[in-house]
Computed example of a mutant assay.
Amino acid sequence: MIRVLIVDDEVLVRSGLRMILEATGDVVVVGEACEGAEAVGAAVRLSPDVILMDVRMPGMDGLSAAAEIGRLPDPPKVIMLTTFDIDEYVHLALRAGAVGFLLKDTPPRDFAAAVRTVAAGNAMLAPTVTRRLISSFAEKGPSPAEAARKRLAVLTYRERQVLREVARGLSNAEIGRELTMSEATVKAHVSNSLAKLGLANRVQAAILVHDAGPFPG
């Protein structure tokens, strides 16, 4: 069973998400919280696999909570929830370690699919809205391409190949088929790359690759 913590200041939203997720049969909601500080405490106490967390809440908001949770030992995966198609705070949440975000009007079946995706170790890069978010973030402000390329230079040729596919939103299995390698090898390349780059997850790696733009293999 996938253990989920729901964090939102609206009772109806929490209740709706609980009903959607627990109807799947492979997800259990282990707790709820109405603001960020409570969410951090619940994450420590309940050890969820995945947290669905609202961006904007009274008290500690979702952004601050995501950063706090990201500093925990073996932190749970955090998916941000927002009513906005593009929310500047979600950009920062991805930098803080969240693995993606969903709009609150996402079809019910997609919430369960998202939870399964991140629980399996994949990032929320496939949905169109998340691709657009990451692209818009990479394009804002002065280009960080040179710094990003310098960081990526520590990787081997194969590791850089794999990260390019991660940035496209492919799963380990899909990358393996694309690059003709086993899924276990892909997973090892991703883990080694994250360790070398000091990154927390695949979303941060994808942002770095987008920042770098085209770069030599």
Rank of each mutant, 00 (worst) to 15 (best):
V99N: 00
V190K: 01
Q161N: 12
E139I: 11
L133V: 03
L72Q: 07
H189K: 03
E22P: 05
E146I: 08
P76R: 08
A96F: 04
I2F: 06
P75A: 11
D105A: 13
P48Q: 06
P107I: 06
R109C: 09
E159A: 02
Q161K: 12
A119P: 03
K104S: 04
R132W: 09
A120L: 10
F215V: 00
R151G: 00
L12P: 07
T180V: 13
P76K: 06
E174T: 08
Q161G: 14
R131D: 11
L133R: 01
D110E: 15
A200E: 14
V154Y: 03
L102E: 02
P214R: 07
A23P: 11
H91A: 15
N192M: 10
V29K: 02
L170T: 05
D8Q: 06
I86E: 09
A120W: 10
P144L: 06
E68K: 13
L103W: 05
V78Q: 04
V78S: 03
P58Y: 14
I86M: 13
R202P: 12
I20V: 15
R177T: 09
D54T: 12
V99L: 02
A212S: 11
A188W: 09
F111A: 01
R45L: 10
A138G: 14
G121T: 11
E22H: 05
R131G: 02
E10D: 11
V190A: 04
V115I: 05
G70F: 07
A206F: 07
G176V: 08
R109N: 12
P73H: 12
V190T: 04
R168K: 15
T180Y: 09
A39F: 02
I79G: 01
L92S: 13
P127E: 01
R149G: 00
A147H: 04
K140A: 14
F215R: 00
V186R: 04
P142Q: 15
V4E: 00
L199Q: 09
K77Y: 12
A114I: 05
M181H: 05
A23M: 09
I69T: 03
E146W: 06
S47M: 11
P108I: 08
L94H: 10
R151S: 00
L125T: 15
E22R: 07
P214E: 05
I207Y: 03
E183Q: 10
S191H: 12
A147E: 09
G198C: 04
A67K: 13
G176R: 08
I51N: 00
D26W: 10
L92H: 15
I79M: 06
R116N: 07
L197I: 01
A205I: 04
L46T: 07
K140N: 14
G25A: 04
F101Y: 14
G16I: 06
K150R: 15
G59M: 05
I20Y: 05
L125S: 13
E159Y: 03
